[in-house]
Amino acid sequence: MGKYQIGEFEEVVLLAVAILHGQAYGVSIRKEIETKMDRKVSIGALQSCLDRLQKKGYLSSQDGEVTNERGGRPKRYFQITVAGKNALESTKEMRNQLWDSIPQVILDLKFSSI
């Protein structure tokens, strides 16, 4: 995987942050993952993943405005960094390469058996 090592869930979170572009904070990221990718995420899993990605330098964050609906607590907005973008791209590339190197026969087989 070269110099960018991210796990599957980390990739999903990075993607969600990228999609939300500027509106990515805990609740919205979670909703994004739940609706678009149809998978359940606990706050604990999400937050520790965000923390990890930030440590690795793929995400940056800043505190946002204070709103009443959150009991007076600020939102923390996440942005994808250049390193994060690179990581996503390299992951995608790697995957494409792998897809391409699958012999056509196997894919046909697989599709015909469905």
Partner: peptide, 16 residues
């Protein structure tokens, strides 16, 4: 360092 915004997320999620 994480307490405030995670609490915010928790509460927002809760009210929803």
């Amino acid at each position: 360092d994480l307490r405030y915004h995670i609490e915010g997320d928790l509460l927002e999620f809760f009210y929803e």
